[in-house]
């Protein structure tokens, strides 16, 4: 009963229409940012390396990693944030673990993931 009340509250806040965020996928997150008075959409593309708390939970987040000019950049997005305009899954990766932290240790060609064919 207690949990149900909270789930009822959360259900109203959940976002619908997000694609399934599978670990290892190449994703593009279109995120709304404010610059002074203006608002614009900024894209952040990279590999999905971590999900926290399950996509159906309001408190869930996911982490996207990309390498820019030789520097690894990771960004954590709240899955159900109203600031996320949309998430595009560009390509699904073939991975064997739930958290791809090992990619942090790898550079260049080794840091690639094989594509998952037939889903």
């Amino acid at each position: 009963m207690r949990r149900q009340q909270i789930e009822w509250l959360e259900a109203a806040e959940l976002r619908k229409g997000l694609p399934e965020l599978a670990i290892g996928a190449q994703v593009k997150v279109n995120y709304r940012i404010r610059e002074g008075e203006k608002e614009r959409v900024q894209a952040f593309a990279g590999v999905l390396i971590r999900r926290h708390d399950g996509q159906s939970h309001l408190t869930s987040t996911f982490t996207v990693r990309k390498v820019t000019q030789g520097f690894g950049v990771e960004r954590i997005f709240p899955t159900h944030s109203p600031l996320i305009e949309s998430v595009e899954v560009l390509r699904r990766g073939k991975v064997r673990r739930a958290k791809l932290y090992y990619l942090r240790q790898l550079r260049g060609k080794k840091a690639r993931l094989r594509e998952l064919v037939n889903a």
């Binding site: 949990r3 009340q5 909270i6 959360e10 309001l58 109203p82 600031l83």
Partner: peptide, 23 residues
């Protein structure tokens, strides 16, 4: 009241607010 647990809510500006739910 009775404490039911915690969750979070979003504001229009995208801020996450941690909240405790009490009946």
């Amino acid at each position: 009241g009775r404490k039911l647990g915690m969750t979070q809510i979003f504001t229009a500006t995208g801020e996450r607010i941690p909240v405790t739910v009490v009946e």
